[in-house]
Nucleic acid binder design. Structure first.
Lengths: 351, 351
DNA sequence: GAACAGTGATGGAACGTTCCACGACATCTG
DNA sequence: CAGATGTCGTGGAACGTTCCATCACTGTTC
């Protein structure tokens, strides 16, 4: 049944188990046709009759023939590869964006190669280099950790689309982002409607997306609650900021009655700290997250959060990348609308 | 400063922006040497003098030369690529295993390509095919969803190492797994030491790892608490099983006082259901998870969980794969020891 | 000073594929 | 039946690299 492996496999790497991989020549010889005919048959191109095509395919199947992608892309001068650079595997936001990119890539017959930065700026950059060395025709970058100069330099060689906020203008690089100001507006409006006025913002990062969200929060507060000075905590020393917020809430007289956080991860930490300190949620404090990640439904109380259409953003990013590869030269920046998902971590303030 | 892109990039794909990628020939001509000399220089091989090497490297740098990976692997007959097949991006278990694999691969100068199954058996299989088409020299599979027949068939072409429980014997395929029986023993021992006797097991999957863990639980119970009939819920209709467990706990007379769950995900669902129903944790119910994922520290109470040395498992898997690629033919199956991490979701039972 | 060894450098032959120009043959058209 | 128009199929030339045999030269050794 199973063909036994040869007693001592050669070390050269050239000959895999059970001898060499069959090539197009082997198939041609076995089928009694030219290699060109085989090439046409397996690529489903016209130039061979239906009968010979079928015959060739059958022989190929029998021999276990697999076309060598490298040889093909060598002669065609294109690889059909696109890259996606992730800052962090194991993050559901990235997973969902990736799913969108994958779907769009599959439709366009592009193969997706994943690069993984592991939350480390240097590694992220190395990984991007590695993708380029592999010969990707473009890269979707799901991270705001790549420095703009580097982005611009790489962008000159190969099309790039960033999912998320770009740190300022980067000529030659496209982007797709959610409208943070709209997300912040929905969060603040929701809290104000519930009756909150002492609303704080908590952030754990100084990267563009976070800063943008923070600015949007401040602006929204000023327009909806003029006279109230918007309170902002973070991004340095997140843990201390959380402790301080919890302390303020426990005073009850002047502390915030609601917190809009930079994302669900930060919100989860805040929820944990509150529960540890005996702060009752949502009675004493309403909390709004950002991302609508899978965390929201696992926490208690379940987290009210701003949802980004992640898969759609991924699709758009890849479509834009494909346009670039196709020759578009002018920059494009698109944004999508986020949407608030209300759960049980928000309620009217006491009294 | 920035070289402007040409007004209309050609559509052929062959010529990238700013003309064709420079090849080894271009460098050779510019440096006034033969292409062979360039090849030797860039690969740091002997056969060129130090002076010419330096000169060549400088010219290459200036021209922005990048060696073409395909051409190289075409002639060398090996790609230097290994694959890793993940069932689910966005899962911290997979992320950590991947990190270990990445580190080991980097040390061996192998490039890692990630395949993503998106929790779908068919897609997983397609993704494995795609990796093979890319020419990987071996694959680490972090998933128990690939059917054994398929595993065996692919394993005949290319070395495979499975991280996790293999579904029975699969000749030609290696594996690295944690000792579920040891994990189950530690969990049960911990609960028994706290004074629990009515301990249930909750599982949400019928895959090998879960079944193995379940069997280990039953065995442990029989040996530590003879006379008690081990209660097992799931894997079908997880939600209903959870509801039933919560109902039993609320009776207080005969229901379980502790639950050992198949993994942290399932534990999180149970925690949520308990809190929703007003069951106090850990007073009324102790809960032990499996995986020691990032979830554990986000939930309240923080989850006691069995830790698997994920990164180490990843490293071992890749090292074993490299051995296989190097020519080893006999099968190897290694296991590692898990370790219980006690947090606040477990306590002595009331009364 | 002849034979030899070692170093630096070279051109041509692969690697497995696609592309292109062209040829053999059949079928249609006036 | 001569020419036009297809269809089916072919061999050779690329693609960018590494590998190998070979060569020219410089010392070194007897």
């Amino acid at each position: 049944m199973t063909t036994a492996p040869p007693p001592a496999a050669s070390q050269t790497g050239r000959s895999r188990r059970s001898g060499r991989q069959p090539t197009i020549h082997d198939v041609a010889k076995a089928a009694g046709v030219s290699k060109s005919a085989v090439s046409l048959a397996i690529r489903n191109q016209r130039g061979v009759s239906e009968a010979t095509r079928e015959h060739i395919l059958q022989v190929a199947q029998q021999l276990g023939y697999r076309s060598n992608v490298w040889a093909r892309s060598l002669v065609q001068g294109r690889t059909g590869l696109v890259g996606i650079l992730l800052q962090d595997l194991g993050n559901s936001y990235h997973r969902d964006v990736t799913a969108g990119v994958e779907d769009a890539a599959a439709e366009l017959d592009l193969r997706l190669v994943i690069g993984h930065g592991r939350r480390d700026a240097a590694r992220l950059q190395a990984e991007l280099d590695s993708l380029l060395a592999l010969g990707v025709e473009g890269v979707v970058i799901v991270s705001s950790w790549v420095p703009p100069q580097y982005l611009e330099r790489v962008g000159r060689r190969v099309p790039l689309v960033v999912v998320g906020r770009l740190p300022g203008q980067v000529p030659g690089v496209d982007s797709v982002a959610n409208r943070d100001e709209l997300g912040a507006r929905q969060a603040v409006e929701h809290l104000v409607e519930l009756g909150h006025t002492r609303i704080a913002h908590l952030t754990g990062s100084a990267r563009p997306a976070a800063m943008h969200r923070r600015a949007a929060f401040c602006e929204m507060m000023r327009s909806l609650l003029p006279g109230v000075d918007p309170q902002v905590e973070g991004p340095e020393q997140l843990e201390a900021a959380i402790r301080y917020l919890v302390f303020q809430v426990q005073q009850e007289t002047s502390g915030p009655t609601a917190v809009f956080t930079q994302n669900d991860r930060v919100a989860a930490d805040l929820v944990g700290a509150c529960l540890d300190a005996g702060v009752r949620l949502p009675e004493q404090l309403s909390i709004v997250g950002y991302d609508n990640s899978s965390l929201c439904r696992m926490l208690r109380p379940q987290l009210t959060s701003v949802d980004q259409p992640r898969a759609q953003m991924g699709r758009m990013a890849l479509d834009m990348l494909a346009e670039r590869i196709g020759g578009r030269t002018e920059d494009r920046h698109v944004t999508v609308a986020p949407e608030l998902v209300v759960r049980s971590s928000t309620a009217a303030p006491r009294g």
